[in-house]
Write a protein that binds this DNA or RNA. Sequence first.
DNA 1: ATGGCGCATGGAATGCGA
Length: 253
Amino acid sequence: MKLATWNVNSLKVRLPHVLDWLAREQPDVLCLQELKLEDKSFPTAEIEAAGYRPVFSGQKTYNGVAILSRQPASDVVCGTPGFADEQKRLIAATIDGVRIVCGYFPNGQAVGSDKFIYKMAWLQALTAWLKTELTQHPKLALLGDYNIAPEDRDAHPDWKEEIHVSPAEREAFQALTALGLSDAFRLFPQADKSFSWWDYRMMAFRRNFGLRIDHILLSAPLTAACKSCVVDKAPRALERPSDHAPVVVELGA
DNA sequence: ATGGCGCATGGAATGCGA
């Protein structure tokens, strides 16, 4: 089973890249973030023509998440239960017996700002909900744009901002792994300075000035089955790319 | 020291992302 996550920064603009990538990579599940479109504008026909079924939770201009899958999705949940949130940042569904949770974690803007406080509250609510969700679904994967670089090696040495690398954010990430989830990327040897996001400005991709902020966390049964985890940098090098690259895991039987 | 690009909205300039 092949699972992937990709912040596409506007599904309308990125649809050709997404369709090309699906055709080439043939994942069983693709989680998308930052759709930036309303549900009525979701490109259902194009996704279905590519052989995938979508479930989605969108909104105008900002946010928006979707799960595309070859097999049907059941028990779909939009938004973190118990956390009132007007921003469409979470969708979960069960596919082939695996609980898939797709999240677009808040950016936080600056440590201590109102948006940062919202980010931390969002993370706390997610963690509390996942704790109960894991009791119901031992096979669970949390995929998405976390907007957190978990360790120093996940940020370029010249990254000067506090946001994405602050102790509070990293503690929140560790609270997720403390639920029994493993960072799939770190189950395997990886090149130094492996990132998943590069700013559009400053020729950041060419200089590899990036952050690793897109992650796939796996519960214990899925961790045991995990065969690989890679960042696919190829789409970032295309014309009019998303600023994020897809992250992909392969699970064995 | 700042902003540097891209997207959306709306039809210019601004908010936001990370």
